[in-house]
Write a protein that binds this DNA or RNA. Structure first.
Lengths: 207, 207
DNA sequence: CCTTTTACATACACCCTTGTATGGATGACG
DNA sequence: CGTCATCCATACAAGGGTGTATGTAAAAGG
């Protein structure tokens, strides 16, 4: 075998990550050996151990490709006026998130993180999920607080509870869909449920 | 070592299941060997292989101790008049569920099923979660449909969407809490969120 | 063009785990 | 009270996975 050029080496790395996604999703992280991943990418463990220190390192690199914090989604909307309509900001950011999740890579990696891996090595998936949940919930509560101050929230509805409600609902939908994505479209049902929920929480006809 | 009496043997079996719960929860199902479980129960693998065929069999027996279908919770309310107040039936059944989840055994086993195990052997935890979700969601939609026919639901709110909304919210809360139960009380926050959500979905003051 | 480094493939040693086979002591039972 | 099935411990064989060490041919770089 010959040494590859830098571009080929980078491609090898990506191929290994792609292979890891597929095998992890199919057989679970714990039950897949590095040998299986390497073979699935038409490589050997030698290549894998050159690009990554071990399975945990490979796993983290895999996650690195699909980071998607809530605040980033809000900024991606590109409309500065959404600050004045916080509930709409939530809505558009979630729609952005749904769209991303329909991309195979995002869906697969998140499904692995949520449903197909346990603690191993120095990796704690639950801690990562906690971080994601905290970040999202915090942002949602902030936006709900903002909405409350602007009078956009139904009177009597505590903004913190509203944020937690949204986070719980979105998280539940997220988990359900990732369990088997063929049951329904996250974009369709997500839009329907989110719009319904926001409508329930919105202040009635502010004539 | 001497042979035990039947009662002692049954106690051994329970002790092995208890040990499995604790070790599974701490280290994950895949990363725990049968040796570790046996030692944690002050036994050897011999005892384990006598009571269970393998890890999958042990796992299923562990789940068997905490079955909790939604319909069973409704029946446990013991008030036949709840049929006339479906939203109240949902509320009381969920409260029953919250209370059960605060028992260590129920909490631990569900946490293992949701967050600490992958597919292994002929066991597919996701299929089990799917069954649980389907059962709960179906029941919730039924009750919401009943509520709609009785005019208890906010006009314009599709009962199927209402059921899915409840299931997503409860599921999200469930997952969040099982991730680390020390953050909040499932009974307290669950009651708060559920009451808030039901209030949002309820038909306004039917004077 | 020569040297060095890169990007892998191959080979090796080690440990952990599983399943089963065997042993043995005693409760259950007639 | 003797026999048998039970309940569990111990021993054994086998396989699979990990990490590392070594080999190597070509790309990088001067």
């Amino acid at each position: 075998m010959a040494r590859r050029t830098k571009a080929e080496a980078a491609a090898t790395r990506e191929a290994l990550l792609d292979a890891a996604e597929e095998v992890f999703l199919e057989k679970g992280v714990a039950r897949t050996s590095l040998e299986q991943i390497a073979r699935h990418a038409d490589m050997t463990r030698g290549a894998l151990y050159w690009h990554f220190r071990n399975k945990a390192d490979l796993f983290q690199a895999m996650l690195q490709r699909v980071r998607m914090p809530f605040q980033e989604l809000v900024e991606e909307i590109g409309d500065p006026s959404v600050t004045e309509r916080p509930l709409e900001a939530i809505r558009l950011a979630c729609l952005k998130g749904f769209e991303r999740l329909e991309q195979p890579r995002y869906r697969r990696v998140h499904a692995i993180l949520i449903h197909h891996c346990e603690v191993f090595g120095d990796i704690d998936p639950l801690a990562m999920q906690n971080e994601m949940a905290e970040e999202a919930c915090g942002a949602l509560i902030d936006y709900c607080g903002c909405a409350a101050r602007l009078g956009h929230l139904r009177p009597g509805l505590d903004p913190e509870v509203a944020g937690e409600l949204l986070q719980a609902m979105l998280g539940g939908l997220f988990h359900d869909w990732l369990r088997n994505h063929e049951r329904f479209s996250i974009l369709e049902r997500g839009t329907l449920l989110l719009d319904t929920q926001l409508e329930l929480m919105r202040a009635p006809a502010s004539g």
